[in-house]
């Protein structure tokens, strides 16, 4: 980092480019232009396409919001995909098999997510295990939990009777609600959940003491500690909130698929990290924000949608996504 006197004021363009939000906007703009060029017979200009893009991006966006918190605090959470699967299974079991009402099952699922995050956060903060390792362990463990709870099978509306025959039960109301659309069918409930959660996290980060402490400990943990920041508590809380958001994502996923798949969410943690980094939150910690992650979510979501409406094969899609992530991150580094 260069040290300069403030009097050396850079040009307006340089300052604009130095602002991570404008870079994230630029990336999104480029992707949208891409969509306008490769519109796949006007498909990109239909409202339904955008509605679907937002709906499909919502689950990833939820995970990315939690990931952003943890990354700002200087950590990483690899367990979100597994926690998502575990909660999806648990939510399906509670709602379909056990017939729990949503006012009971939803808080229970949130608690499960919080517990998973709490364990990895506690191991990281108190026992000083590197977050990569602690959450890697939780990633494996939660996947095991999901498979144990589900018995290795998808938990669907086909319920096995005592005699061993399958019968289909009705999809629970809470599933149907989450999977529905409101405002004349223009906004998916899942998208709404994502936006509300993102807003809550944004308020915490921007206005709560804890948000400031998180930035501080991500920027320089020792300096934060010597400034009286309760480093361990703040760190723990970031993993707990990340776990809760993964639980929300898991419930959304279960509702959309109408089942709890113990194999769900594999690799989602990496997408969440990619979204966070695309937005401009640095992996080193201390810099970034939820606004940036929202832009990152839109960028990755639209990119995926544009590639899929143009019927680009999945193999090519994956390679292109990889290249675009690297280019985006390199572009961010140049300005520092």
């Amino acid at each position: 980092m260069r040290v300069t006197e403030p009097s050396a004021s850079p040009s307006a363009w340089v300052r604009l480019w130095a602002n991570p939000a404008s870079r994230a906007l630029l990336a999104l703009g480029l992707v949208l232009i891409l969509g306008c060029v490769f519109h796949a017979d006007q498909a990109f200009f239909r409202l339904g396409t955008h509605r679907d893009a937002l709906r499909q991006a919502s689950v990833f966006g939820l995970l990315a919001c939690g990931m952003t918190l943890v990354i700002i605090g200087g950590g990483i959470d690899l367990a979100v995909g597994s926690v998502l699967a575990f909660v999806a299974v648990a939510f399906s079991l509670m709602s379909i098999h056990w017939g729990w009402p949503p006012w009971f099952s939803v808080p229970a699922c949130l608690l499960l997510g919080a517990a998973c995050g709490g364990v990895s956060g506690g191991v990281t903060a108190w026992f000083r295990v590197q977050p990569f390792i602690a959450t890697l362990a939780m990633m494996v463990f939660a996947r095991g939990l999901a498979k144990t709870a589900s018995g290795g099978m998808k938990v669907s509306t086909a319920v096995k009777d005592a005699e061993g025959t399958y019968r289909y039960v009705e999809v629970p109301g809470v599933f149907r609600f989450i999977d529905s659309r409101i405002l004349d069918g223009n906004v998916a409930v899942v998208t709404l959940i994502f936006v509300v959660c993102a807003a809550l996290v944004w308020v915490l980060l921007a206005r709560h003491r804890w948000g400031r402490e998180l930035y501080a400990l991500g920027g320089n943990e020792e300096a934060a500690r010597l400034s009286g920041v309760p480093v361990r508590q703040a760190k723990l809380l970031s993993y707990v909130v990340c776990g809760v958001l993964a639980a929300v994502a898991g419930m959304c996923q279960a509702a959309q698929e109408q089942q709890g798949d113990p194999e769900a969410g594999i690799g989602y943690e990496l997408t969440a990290i990619a979204i966070t980094v695309m937005g401009g939150t640095t992996l080193a910690g201390g810099r970034g924000g939820i606004g940036l992650t929202l832009l990152g979510t839109l960028t990755i979501g639209y990119l995926d949608k544009i590639l899929s409406i143009n019927a680009v094969p999945e193999a090519t899609r994956l390679m292109l996504t990889g290249i675009i992530i690297v280019v985006a991150v390199l572009a961010q580094r140049r300005s520092r």
């Binding site: 980092m1 400031r212 930035y215 501080a216 920027g219 320089n220 020792e222 300096a223 934060a224 010597l226 400034s227 009286g228 920041v229 201390g286 810099r287």
Partner: peptide, 16 residues
């Protein structure tokens, strides 16, 4: 190394 949070603003550092 131990005094300031370099990526944070003047305001955030002073109030920390």
């Amino acid at each position: 190394a131990t005094g300031l949070i370099l990526p944070l603003s003047v305001l955030a550092n002073v109030t920390l």
